[in-house]
């Protein structure tokens, strides 16, 4: 499997990354290198092996349902670029 320039541009768009026309070829080469490694892994017969979602064999830790978090809005909003009436302001988004 090999990524085309169009694939690279699409992946970049999905990740909201700006990749210039000059960079597309180089990024594509790097990504294809990674995919090449994965292809080697895929050559191994994994019939009957349960897919692994996590590398470490641990179970999820659970916490009790108690609301203990203090209101830290002032501290959080002190480092936000723009706030008003307690809201974070962002460039207008209407889908």
């Amino acid at each position: 499997m090999s990524l085309t320039d169009a694939d690279v541009r699409r992946i970049a768009r999905l990740a909201r990354l700006r990749v210039s026309d000059e960079e597309v070829t180089e990024v594509g080469r790097q990504l294809n290198g990674i995919l090449g490694l994965i292809e080697q892994l895929q050559a191994i017969d994994t019939t009957g092996v349960e897919p692994m979602s996590h590398a470490r064999d641990v179970a999820l830790r659970l916490r009790n349902d108690v609301a203990t978090e203090p209101n830290l809005r002032d501290k959080f909003q002190a480092i936000a670029p723009a706030v008003e009436n307690g809201l974070y302001l962002v460039p207008k988004v209407i889908e």
Binding site: D65, A67, E69, R73, G86
Partner: peptide, 28 residues
């Protein structure tokens, strides 16, 4: 629930904006 799924911030409805958020909820 009383608290959020991945943080200990309250889930109560109708609070002042952004007063019920933890570092996880605002993705620090």
């Amino acid at each position: 629930t009383q608290s959020k799924i991945f943080s200990s911030a309250s889930t109560a409805f109708g609070a002042e904006p952004n007063t019920q958020t933890a570092v996880v909820d605002i993705a620090l």
